[in-house]
Amino acid sequence: MTQLVSFLNSNGSPFVVNIYPFLSLYGSSDFPQDYAFFEGTSHPVTDGSNVYYNAFDGNFDTLVAALSKLGYGQMPIAIGEIGWPTDGAISGNLTAARVFNQGLIKHVLSNKGTPLRPGVPPVDVYLFSLLDEGAKSTLPGNFERHWGIFSFDGQAKYPLKLGLGGRGLKNARKVEYLPSRWCVANPSRDLSDVANHMKLACGVADCTTLTYGGSCNGIGAKGNISYAFNSYYQLQMQNERSCDFDGLGMVTFLDPSIGDCRFLVGVTDTRSSSSSSSQVYRRWDIVWMLIAWRVWFFVM
């Protein structure tokens, strides 16, 4: 650690740290929920003469204290990743993500700093992330695929003011979607032997929204099957055969979305040459529409 910090200091580089209050909340039932946000808390943490009202300041000053002990108490600090997921967990939803990220931006741009660095905010802060990552490992939790501020088609999931003259997020324009059709469970067929087909569909497509805490949890067994079938169908460019599932699937032109559970329609690849067939961006490949695969949104 000392050699690393010395190297950064000699090259005029900041110390980059990732801070995730969400993970603290997700990992412990005893973690005060309001302490993860910036709206004030009934559970402040007192450390000597310093009082902390949010987890961000507490985490930040933990690093400041460690750097001070090494003799680098004034080293600039940048936040390499910070954010809040919008799905895949009870506390991961659109409302919580908007409140957290907006509170973070307001807190940083206020230049208030922290108890150990009053008036000195981080030199840079990068919101994680620009888009969802539908192929990311879910070992830490199903929320790992849902950190995006924008949905797979470049549409903002929620309003967010960036503090730059009051400007907010801008949606991608001229997005070309596939035809409005979906693959759902065939109501006239016996679905008792659907397990292997579900395994196939969810092994390729992202079905994490169906799990406990997800936005599509609770839509019923037939709804789960339809969601899995459709997710796979869209990734296969709406190929007719990809909705067969041994006769258990069928194509419908009526949107099967239920409440907050949205059944997606794929996006075409407008970069394809005229001699190439139209292709669908997989949910995790749509980032090419926005230049990069994985981007941290810069708010400073």
Rank of each mutant, 00 (worst) to 15 (best):
E176H: 15
I149E: 09
S6C: 06
H43D: 12
V5L: 05
S29T: 13
T114S: 03
L162V: 11
A96C: 10
S29P: 02
D153I: 10
A292M: 04
L164F: 08
S91P: 00
G218C: 08
V5C: 06
K222H: 05
G214W: 12
G27H: 01
T114C: 02
S273H: 10
T114L: 00
S10V: 14
K136Y: 11
I82H: 00
F143I: 13
K222E: 15
P85D: 08
G113E: 10
Q238L: 02
L200Y: 02
D30L: 07
A78D: 14
S13L: 15
S231W: 08
N59W: 01
F143T: 13
F100T: 01
V5T: 09
I105F: 08
E144F: 06
S68Y: 05
Y232R: 10
A97V: 12
V280P: 01
G266L: 08
P115M: 03
N50G: 05
V108R: 01
L109S: 05
G223S: 08
R145G: 14
I77N: 07
F297N: 04
L248S: 02
S180Q: 14
F38D: 02
F263C: 06
G103E: 05
G73I: 08
V99T: 12
I19R: 00
S188Q: 01
R181L: 12
F245C: 04
V123D: 07
F298S: 08
L235Q: 13
G80W: 04
Y53V: 15
G148M: 09
D246W: 00
C261K: 00
L70S: 06
L94S: 12
F152W: 07
T268S: 15
T46S: 14
V108K: 03
S242R: 01
R271T: 15
H146N: 14
Q33F: 11
S215T: 11
K69S: 14
L164C: 09
S272K: 15
A172T: 13
K112L: 05
D260W: 05
Q236R: 06
N54Q: 09
Y52I: 04
K69P: 09
I79C: 00
Y281K: 02
V299T: 15
R181F: 10
Q236M: 12
S6V: 07
G163D: 15
R167I: 01
A156S: 12
G48T: 10
S188K: 02
R241G: 04
G223M: 08
S91M: 02
Y232L: 12
G213C: 11
S274D: 15
N224C: 06
D153S: 12
E144L: 12
E81H: 01
V64G: 00
